[in-house]
Computed example of a mutant assay.
Amino acid sequence: MLSCSANMISRYCNSHSVFLSAGAADCTPCPQEYWSNERKDECIPKTTEFLTYHEPMGIALTVVSLLGASLSLVTMMVFIHYRETPVVKASNSELSCFLLFSLFLCFLCPLTFMGRPTVWTCMLRHTAFGVTFALCISCVLGKTIVVVTAFKATIPGNKVAGKFGPAQQRIIVCSCTMIQIVICVLWLKLKPPFPNMVFRYSNKKIVLECNTGSEAAFYAVLGYIGILAVVCLVLAFLARKLPDNFNEAKFITFSMLIFCAVWITFIPAYISSPGKFTVAVEIFAILSSAFGLLSSIFAPKCYIILVKPEKNTKKHVMGINSNKKI
């Protein structure tokens, strides 16, 4: 209780979440989850705010997420159906299918970011995001190394391509993903994410959000993905001038530039966004980077496979012009 004079009571009760007890000469503070009404004679529960599936922004993000997941599955089916064609063979069909599967999971990740935060959803959303994107970029890294080794194989006496077969590609993907899994396990073990009520944005509402628990672990997950992306970008950039019409290194370089640009701009936007818009920014970054990878790497191939089948030949893939003398 707060004992005050009449003027002090009036000023205090008008500026704080308190109510004036009936027949009393003092103000009683409302609990943190409540706010005082206009007459200052009753405590009213604050409204809770979080990104839901049924609000316009939630509906839009859900539709885009499901659209991306559907496009990934359709592209995977196209690659499986045309797996014996030169374009699919040149792009390493096994790693391409792994990449499309990881992109499918990446597009589904935003669905865990919506709805009321709970202990399990908070742990799931951040770790699922970290692992799926690590798997995705690991597949891109494997494809990049294949392109680089293929280029090295054209140098007389160089046998490096023979040392990087399907088994080595799987080892690269699994080991790079496993490092992210270890980081996430340590995160969950030591200081996991948890649901949190935030009162600082408004006196009349409570924002429900997932606290990352350990900021260091959160940025370690992002940083590891960033390291993989930078390595892919550097390797693909070095191999961008391969002398064929279907130089996958060019597509990978462009996709990694989009990926890095999205996540570089994400950090300041994530820090400055209030309330549920923080979640929306994270979802937007996930969807943008996933669409960037899907469109940059696979759209040109699907265009040749489905629209220009006459170019789906070994001669065209290798950059051989039939009008030129060999």
Rank of each mutant, 00 (worst) to 15 (best):
F251P: 12
I227K: 03
A269M: 13
A229V: 03
E248D: 13
Y270A: 06
W187V: 12
W187N: 12
F199M: 12
T265C: 15
A220W: 02
F259R: 04
A217R: 04
E215L: 10
G226Q: 00
V230F: 00
N245I: 02
I252D: 02
Y224Q: 14
Y219K: 03
V231D: 06
R200V: 14
A261C: 12
N247I: 12
V182E: 03
C260Q: 08
F266C: 13
I258A: 04
F218T: 05
F266N: 12
Y201E: 15
A217P: 08
P243C: 00
I225Y: 00
I227T: 13
A236R: 06
A217V: 04
K250S: 03
N247M: 11
I183P: 11
N245C: 06
I225K: 07
A220I: 11
N196A: 07
A229S: 15
V234A: 08
A239R: 03
T212L: 01
N203G: 03
I267F: 05
F194Q: 11
L208A: 06
K204M: 09
V221W: 01
V262S: 10
L190D: 15
C210W: 04
S214P: 01
L238G: 11
I206K: 10
E209M: 12
V182Q: 01
L257G: 11
E215G: 07
F218S: 06
F259G: 04
A236M: 05
F266P: 10
A269P: 09
K189Q: 13
I225T: 14
I267H: 01
A236H: 02
L257F: 02
G226M: 00
V231Y: 00
R200C: 06
V231H: 02
C210S: 08
T265V: 11
V185G: 13
W263M: 02
L233Y: 01
P195E: 06
A220H: 05
I264S: 10
P243V: 00
G213C: 09
I206Q: 09
L188Y: 01
I267E: 05
A220F: 05
L238V: 15
L222Y: 05
T212M: 00
I252G: 04
L190Q: 10
Y219T: 03
T212H: 01
R240K: 15
L242S: 10
L208E: 11
G226Y: 00
D244E: 12
W187P: 14
V185M: 13
S255H: 08
Y201C: 06
A249Y: 02
F266A: 03
N203C: 02
C260I: 15
I225S: 15
A269Q: 11
M197L: 05
F254D: 08
M256A: 10
L242D: 07
F254V: 15
L242N: 13
K205G: 05
V231E: 06
N247L: 10
T253D: 04
C184D: 03
P193G: 06
W263F: 00
V185H: 03
L238T: 11
L257V: 12
I227G: 10
P268K: 07
F199R: 10
G223L: 00
L242R: 08
K204E: 10
L233P: 13
C184A: 01
A249M: 08
F254W: 13
M256T: 11
I258M: 13
E209Y: 03
L228Q: 14
G226H: 00
D244N: 14
V198C: 06
K189L: 15
C184Q: 02
F246I: 04
I252S: 08
